[in-house]
Simulated scan of single mutants.
Amino acid sequence: MDTTDLDLDRLPADRVAADVMRIRGGQRAPASEQDVLAEETPVALAYNGISHATMLASPTDLEDFAVGFSLTEGIVEAARDVRDIVLNVSDDGVVIDIEIASACMARLKTRRRALSGRTGCGLCGVETLPEVLRPVAPVTAETVMRLADLLAGMHAMRRAQALHGATGATHAAAWMTAQGALHAVREDVGRHNALDKLIGALAREGTAAGAGAFLVSSRASFEMVQKTASAGCPILAAVSAPTGLAVRLAQTSGVTLAGFVRGDDATLYTHPQRLPD
């Protein structure tokens, strides 16, 4: 896979400074202070020259994002189907031009034609309800890891969140091995984007997600479970709660779903056998 960055020096920074007036304990500070804010940038994805989706994202690890989004949306089947990635930066945002295999592009065009003219449901650019609830292959990995390692991994992910540490405004997604080692962390203003970046990073380096667990600093929504299953990862641990639809998908797709993973606590919603004491 080739990657090309045009005008890379024009990519927005992932954080910006702002003058703020702090109020603490009901008392206004005598002077303004400088704060650090996480930046978000419009990012458009185009496949073989055809615009597909636009979203707001942190302007970092965009090649990982392009690959991860392409995989979790079912546009490509493997990272090798992505032939080239070009980042085009303008004052309005970033356009990621993604060249994919001709067979993948033919399927995408067929899908787009099938959706044409139907009533949109307004969910993340998906145009029909069946597209939102598209089936995912069951996760077959029998990975088992100690619950204590999972809890320690969540602590380690939090310490590795440099952008969140500076701004308090970003989510993170991490992958840890079954042996308890934190392997990769990606951050973004959007929780879905952070997980796509992580999945893309693993795919680009050839690491099998099925040999470990995903950790996320957010709630576990249906889409987060869907992305986890599509990546073949058997365990998803979230710092907050899951939704009912997310639990039902985790059950049917074979994903071990843990919520409220905080401190020494966790709630196991599905397939708890992968996380023995």
Rank of each mutant, 00 (worst) to 15 (best):
A173T: 09
M176Q: 10
V139G: 12
Y269Q: 14
A238G: 05
R107P: 13
A184I: 08
T128W: 07
E127N: 13
G259T: 15
D84W: 00
D91K: 06
E39D: 09
S221C: 07
H171L: 07
V139W: 01
P138V: 13
D264T: 15
T119Y: 12
A162N: 01
L129C: 11
D35L: 08
V16K: 03
G200D: 05
E223Y: 01
L147D: 05
V132E: 08
T177Y: 04
V261W: 05
V225I: 10
T3W: 00
D149V: 07
L198D: 04
G200A: 06
T119V: 09
T207F: 04
L62S: 01
V189N: 02
R274V: 00
S51N: 09
A106K: 08
D149G: 08
A203I: 02
Q273Y: 11
D61F: 06
P30T: 03
T170C: 04
E127C: 08
A211L: 07
R204W: 02
D64S: 09
R159N: 08
L215R: 10
G25S: 04
D92T: 13
A166C: 02
T207W: 07
A194F: 03
V247G: 13
D277R: 10
I235R: 01
V67D: 02
A103T: 10
R248I: 11
D264N: 11
T60I: 15
I50Y: 04
R274K: 03
G165H: 00
C121T: 14
I75Q: 05
A258I: 11
R83T: 05
R10K: 06
I235N: 05
D2W: 00
L123F: 09
M176W: 01
D91Q: 09
I98E: 03
C233W: 01
P130M: 11
T140M: 12
E77G: 15
A148H: 00
L45G: 11
M176K: 07
A103E: 14
L151N: 10
T54Y: 00
V225H: 00
A250P: 04
L275M: 05
C121Q: 06
G210M: 09
E39Q: 13
K197T: 06
T267N: 07
I100T: 07
Q161N: 07
A208P: 01
M154L: 09
P30Y: 04
A31V: 11
V76E: 03
A101Q: 07
W175M: 14
R191Q: 02
A141Y: 03
M1V: 11
M176D: 06
H171C: 10
L163A: 12
S230V: 15
T270N: 13
V16T: 15
A237V: 09
A238H: 01
L115T: 15
A137K: 12
